[in-house]
Simulated assay, not measured.
Amino acid sequence: MQSDGKLDYLELPSSGIPETKAFYTAAFGWTFVDYGPDYAAFDEGLNGGFDADSDGLKAPLPVLYAQDLPAMLAKVEAAGGTIVRPIFDFPGGQRFHFRDPSGNELAVWSEGG
């Protein structure tokens, strides 16, 4: 079982999935699992993915894990975080996005849903 708050995934924006995959494959030998035309996941020491449909996100998105997503959302708000995307479904589970007091955007996910 995973523990709450574990850095579990890293999403990176992509201006084009085919070009991004070609670069990382040629440069580093990475392999990918495609989740539609706008998302390619990798497992290269840290799980992550490139997102071509990132809703304007232009920075890496660290994704933390939580066993109980609604409870973690409440804890993030109580600690001073600002929720920027409430809980939503995505392939693999549910997640929400928040900004920390320094303005960094992060996400928290869980298998629930």
Rank of each mutant, 00 (worst) to 15 (best):
residue 64 L to A: 00
residue 47 N to K: 15
residue 15 S to V: 14
residue 57 L to F: 07
residue 89 D to R: 15
residue 76 V to I: 12
residue 50 F to G: 10
residue 10 L to G: 00
residue 32 F to T: 07
residue 33 V to P: 00
residue 93 G to Y: 08
residue 31 T to H: 03
residue 102 S to E: 15
residue 80 G to Y: 00
residue 53 D to R: 13
residue 78 A to M: 00
residue 78 A to P: 04
residue 56 G to A: 12
residue 41 A to S: 15
residue 13 P to I: 05
residue 63 V to Y: 06
residue 4 D to W: 05
residue 44 E to P: 05
residue 20 T to R: 03
residue 38 D to T: 14
residue 93 G to F: 05
residue 91 P to H: 03
residue 79 A to S: 09
residue 43 D to T: 08
residue 95 R to G: 13
residue 40 A to P: 07
residue 64 L to C: 06
residue 26 A to S: 15
residue 77 E to R: 10
residue 84 V to D: 01
residue 79 A to M: 02
residue 96 F to A: 01
residue 110 S to W: 06
residue 74 A to E: 10
residue 88 F to V: 12
residue 32 F to R: 03
residue 100 D to N: 03
residue 38 D to C: 04
residue 97 H to M: 13
residue 33 V to Q: 13
residue 87 I to V: 14
residue 101 P to R: 06
residue 112 G to K: 14
residue 55 D to K: 13
residue 3 S to F: 12
residue 26 A to V: 13
residue 84 V to I: 13
residue 47 N to L: 12
residue 96 F to N: 00
residue 105 E to I: 11
residue 38 D to K: 14
residue 18 P to H: 12
residue 38 D to M: 13
residue 109 W to Y: 11
residue 39 Y to I: 09
residue 38 D to W: 07
residue 14 S to K: 09
residue 44 E to Y: 11
residue 14 S to P: 10
residue 29 G to T: 07
residue 7 L to S: 08
residue 19 E to S: 15
residue 65 Y to L: 04
residue 103 G to R: 02
residue 108 V to M: 04
residue 37 P to C: 04
residue 83 I to S: 02
residue 72 M to P: 04
residue 38 D to P: 01
residue 51 D to A: 07
residue 27 A to S: 11
residue 21 K to C: 12
residue 21 K to L: 12
residue 76 V to L: 05
residue 100 D to K: 01
residue 36 G to W: 06
residue 59 A to R: 13
residue 87 I to D: 05
residue 105 E to Q: 13
residue 75 K to F: 06
residue 88 F to S: 04
residue 84 V to Y: 02
residue 21 K to I: 15
residue 101 P to A: 02
residue 12 L to H: 02
residue 17 I to L: 07
residue 68 D to I: 09
residue 96 F to H: 00
residue 18 P to F: 10
residue 47 N to H: 12
residue 24 Y to A: 12
residue 19 E to H: 10
residue 46 L to K: 01
residue 48 G to K: 02
residue 112 G to L: 10
residue 72 M to I: 06
residue 106 L to V: 10
residue 90 F to K: 09
residue 3 S to M: 13
residue 112 G to H: 11
residue 86 P to K: 11
residue 99 R to K: 15
residue 103 G to A: 01
residue 27 A to M: 10
residue 14 S to G: 04
residue 88 F to E: 08
residue 9 Y to M: 03
residue 58 K to P: 05
residue 58 K to I: 13
residue 14 S to M: 11
residue 80 G to T: 02
residue 40 A to H: 01
residue 7 L to I: 14
residue 36 G to S: 04
residue 15 S to Y: 08
residue 88 F to R: 11
residue 76 V to A: 04
residue 10 L to W: 00
residue 53 D to N: 15
residue 84 V to F: 00
residue 82 T to F: 00
residue 8 D to W: 09
residue 20 T to N: 05
residue 23 F to I: 03
residue 94 Q to E: 14
residue 75 K to D: 12
